[in-house]
Computed example of a mutant assay.
Amino acid sequence: MMDRSTSKKLDIVIPAFRAHSQTFVMVLDGISEEDAKKRIDGKTNHMIWMVGNFVNMRYSLGWVLGLKEEDPFSELFFQGKALDESFDYPTLAQLKESFHKISPLVYDKLLQATDEDLDKDFPMGMGVDFFKEDVLNFVGMCIGREDYLSGQLGLMRKILGYEGMKYNFDKDLKY
């Protein structure tokens, strides 16, 4: 049974958020720490960067919904900061731990968000007339970014020689 959000505006976001949590776990299943640091021909981000950006999206989403949790790796990933091979990036295990810490907290905030919360202005500096800069649209952008990163992670699995992602949903993962 799907959890019900306070705001009907999030009826499509809640299942997407939960699906992304599942995808996050499944797409990283079996990936070694060594492989998670590999880049393709020096042109791609490595999986650590992709995962760190994904987790940072969760922290950003929580922040805009009123959570005051700080991403311990924010300085490496905030606003999609470019990969820099001179940085000492966290391990995949550290990022997974951070993901599982923040995700249930953000999920609860999504369930509690009211229409008034979602309608609040949230300037993003996009400056395009078809995009209202409010909390609801920021939530949508975060979900879109998670989709994008999940696709990149899935492609990297294949490029690095892993089999495709298995859809083994964890019925106990409630966020």
Results as ranks from 00 to 15, higher is better:
E97G: 07
A16P: 00
S103Q: 04
N168Q: 12
Y175G: 00
D119G: 04
N56M: 10
F138K: 10
F99M: 13
D71I: 02
E70T: 14
K109L: 11
F77E: 01
E75I: 06
D147C: 10
L28D: 13
N56T: 08
H20G: 03
L83G: 04
E70I: 14
N45W: 08
G144L: 14
E163T: 11
E116R: 09
D41Q: 10
Q112T: 08
S86I: 07
Q79S: 12
E34C: 02
V25L: 12
A93V: 15
N53D: 15
S7N: 06
K68S: 07
L10V: 01
D170H: 14
N56Y: 10
M57R: 03
L155T: 14
F130E: 13
D172Q: 10
R39S: 08
A82I: 04
M126T: 09
G66H: 10
I31K: 09
Y175I: 00
F73Y: 15
M1R: 01
K101L: 15
V25W: 11
D29K: 13
K38H: 12
V106W: 03
M141N: 05
L105T: 04
K174M: 07
L95S: 08
D121E: 14
T44F: 06
N168W: 07
G62K: 01
G140N: 14
P90L: 04
H100S: 10
S86K: 15
Y175Q: 00
R39L: 08
G127I: 02
Y175H: 10
D147I: 08
A16Q: 05
